[in-house]
Lab assay of single mutants.
Amino acid sequence: MGFKLLSKLLVYLTASIMAIASPLAFSVDSSGEYPTVSEIPVGEVRLYQIADGVWSHIATQSFDGAVYPSNGLIVRDGDELLLIDTAWGAKNTAALLAEIEKQIGLPVTRAVSTHFHDDRVGGVDVLRAAGVATYASPSTRRLAEVEGNEIPTHSLEGLSSSGDAVRFGPVELFYPGAAHSTDNLIVYVPSASVLYGGCAIYELSRTSAGNVADADLAEWPTSIERIQQHYPEAQFVIPGHGLPGGLDLLKHTTNVVKAHTNRSVVE
């Protein structure tokens, strides 16, 4: 069995187990497998329904001669939608809004960016022009300005110390501490036991640490421990890039980060 097929099978099995364990909360999309990078042309966006009122959005972007996937989250909030992270750029984010209108038909009224990198804030200006209120932590807003990236308009308070959590509509926002970046936030959907790890969490097929220019490698494993301790009931975990899975993604990420750190020390 090929690795790609095995990865998709694991996603399907995880979703099936969740649907059985929580039949009222989960209505997993039966329309197909989780979209992969090879299936999404740059400039297009796919939506994948995880649970009743919960979707991931998947886009792709060219970077350094390669094409990478990027995940975000959409959560229903009454007759409105909360968006977590842009679709990595203005063109993708405009396509995301169009796809949401086509498939869901509810307005996106608020959006949260989970850290300051372009795959999370690139497209904020498109959201703002569409009347979406954009939010991020003060740290993310400051770092985005320093980096020359787009800056969300509103500040999220109460997320300055490791372990801080605040309720934001249908989700809980959690600051686990520094990891992929010093400002990275985690998003949890309690009604569906869905954990969105953003770039602080890796997919299972990833074996290298990737972009760690703004990471705190020493603190990252401790931050992941905080996530595990705060959300032990999480059933569906979405990484910032690639295929979702279960809580095993947290341990896998820790292993990859520690291996990278150990290699760096040896070198």
Rank of each mutant, 00 (worst) to 15 (best):
M1A: 10
M1V: 11
F3E: 09
F3D: 12
K8T: 06
V11I: 06
A15T: 04
A15L: 08
A15I: 06
I17F: 07
I17K: 03
I20N: 13
A21M: 05
A21E: 09
P23T: 05
P23W: 08
P23D: 11
F26I: 03
F26M: 03
F26R: 11
D29N: 03
D29P: 08
S30G: 10
S30N: 14
S31D: 02
P35R: 11
P35I: 04
T36P: 03
V37Q: 13
V37I: 08
S38P: 14
E39R: 07
I40K: 10
V42N: 15
G43V: 08
V45S: 12
I50W: 13
A59D: 07
A59L: 13
Q61K: 08
F63M: 14
F63H: 12
D64M: 15
G65P: 11
G65W: 04
Y68D: 08
P69L: 10
P69F: 15
L73Y: 00
V75I: 11
E80Y: 04
L82G: 05
L83W: 01
I84L: 06
D85M: 00
D85V: 00
T86C: 12
A87Q: 12
G89W: 02
A90D: 06
A90G: 11
N92V: 10
A94G: 09
I100K: 02
E101I: 07
E101W: 14
K102I: 15
I104N: 13
V108C: 05
T109S: 14
R110M: 02
S113K: 01
S113R: 01
D118T: 12
V121G: 02
V126K: 15
L127W: 03
A130T: 08
A130P: 04
A133G: 06
A133V: 06
T134V: 11
S137V: 06
S139R: 09
R141L: 13
R141N: 15
R141I: 14
L143D: 05
A144Y: 11
E145D: 07
E147N: 10
P152R: 11
T153P: 06
T153D: 06
H154C: 14
H154E: 12
S155K: 04
E157M: 11
S160A: 11
S161I: 07
S162F: 15
S162L: 05
G163C: 05
D164A: 09
V166C: 08
P176W: 00
T182C: 14
L185C: 03
Y188P: 00
P190I: 14
P190T: 11
P190W: 03
S193E: 07
V194L: 05
L195A: 08
Y196I: 03
G197P: 10
G197Q: 00
C199G: 05
Y202V: 03
S205G: 08
G210H: 14
A213Y: 04
A213T: 14
D214N: 14
D216E: 05
L217G: 07
L217C: 13
A218Q: 04
T222P: 07
Q228P: 11
Q229S: 07
E233G: 09
E233M: 05
A234Y: 09
A234W: 02
F236R: 09
I238D: 01
H241R: 01
L243S: 06
P244N: 04
G246A: 12
G246N: 07
G246I: 08
L247I: 04
D248M: 03
L249P: 00
V257C: 13
A259S: 08
S264P: 15
V266K: 05
E267M: 05
E267T: 10
